[in-house]
């Protein structure tokens, strides 16, 4: 046997003819599709181009982005304690957290948004008071609930329920032995969570959270029903005037796609960041 000639280091890869043809076919179909879309006047590409960066569209975009960031941040901040409460041995805390998740996941987001927007019909006044005791502070509900606050309340409280479950799953994915170690070393629960448990849970938390964020960007379009001027609302306002429905929707679609693409890149970066110490993705 000639081991030198059979050394695998010298091996050639045969040309993958089948895969090459497949690629070619897919490229051809894609090009043809692009040609049809570009050549179809009904898409109104010149209109899309002229409105893509119109002031009102950009304002709508910034409302969508701002709302997403605020609602997502609040969703995580509220979801974290709910997840911790749900995992605690305390029956009362665990029960309350379960009730929260049950309610907010069990009702449509659209209904929740409209509900917050119309809160004043239920409670004309909002007050902070000692239960059954004197009132400390009170406001007129209509002054507090604007489309903005209703949108933030609706989106973030709903998001918190989903994030709580994602975070809980992440915390449960961490090896029991890690909790043992933090206990044995006399770490407080909060310290152990912050330094040892959460960083490890993040690997399981980041991918579904990226998913949530992308859903959230699209879910913000629901706020157009409560007259909040987000991206969708602003293109609707334009096509209600010009009747160029499809081109204006394309404007919104392009922006949604651009933003979600940027987020995909960010998610990949975060996933590598939290893979520290795992087999995949060793940092230098």
């Amino acid at each position: 046997m000639d081991d030198a000639a059979r050394d695998v280091a010298r091996a050639h890869r045969p040309f993958p003819l089948g895969r090459g043809l497949l690629w070619l076919a897919v490229m051809l179909i894609a090009a043809d599709f692009a040609w049809i879309v570009a050549g179809n006047g009904n898409f109104g590409w010149p209109v899309v181009a002229s409105y893509l960066t119109t002031a009102s569209v950009l304002e709508g975009l910034s409302v969508t982005l701002g709302l997403t960031v605020v609602a997502m941040t609040l969703g995580v901040l509220i979801g974290l304690p709910i997840a911790i409460a749900r995992l605690s041995n305390d029956r009362l805390l665990g029960g309350l957290a379960g009730l929260y998740i049950w309610f907010f996941r069990g009702t449509p987001l659209l209904v929740q948004l409209i509900f917050w927007y119309n809160l004043s019909t239920l409670f004309p006044e909002i007050a902070i008071s000692i239960p059954f005791g004197p009132t400390l502070l009170h406001w007129n509900t209509n002054d507090v609930i604007t489309p903005m606050t209703a949108a933030i309340a609706g989106l973030s409280l709903n998001e918190a329920a989903y994030m709580a479950e994602i975070i809980r799953g992440g915390l449960l994915s961490v090896d029991r032995g890690q909790v043992e170690a933090t206990d044995a070393f006399g770490m407080t629960r909060a310290y152990a969570l912050r330094r040892i448990i959460l960083p490890q849970a993040m690997r399981a938390i980041v991918p579904p959270t990226g998913n949530q964020l992308i859903s959230m960007i699209k879910a913000t379009s629901l706020v157009s029903v409560i007259a909040m001027a987000d991206l969708l609302y602003s293109v609707q306002t334009i096509y209600n005037r010009t009747f160029e429905v499809i081109p204006m929707l394309l404007v919104a679609v392009l922006w949604y796609l651009l933003v979600t693409s940027v987020l995909n890149v960010g998610q990949g970066w975060l996933e590598r960041r939290f893979a520290r110490g795992s087999e995949r993705g060793q940092p230098a």
Partner: peptide, 14 residues
Amino acid sequence: IGMVFQSFNLYPHM
């Protein structure tokens, strides 16, 4: 009190 475990329980991200 220090403790050493059968399964080490080192913090894998550190």
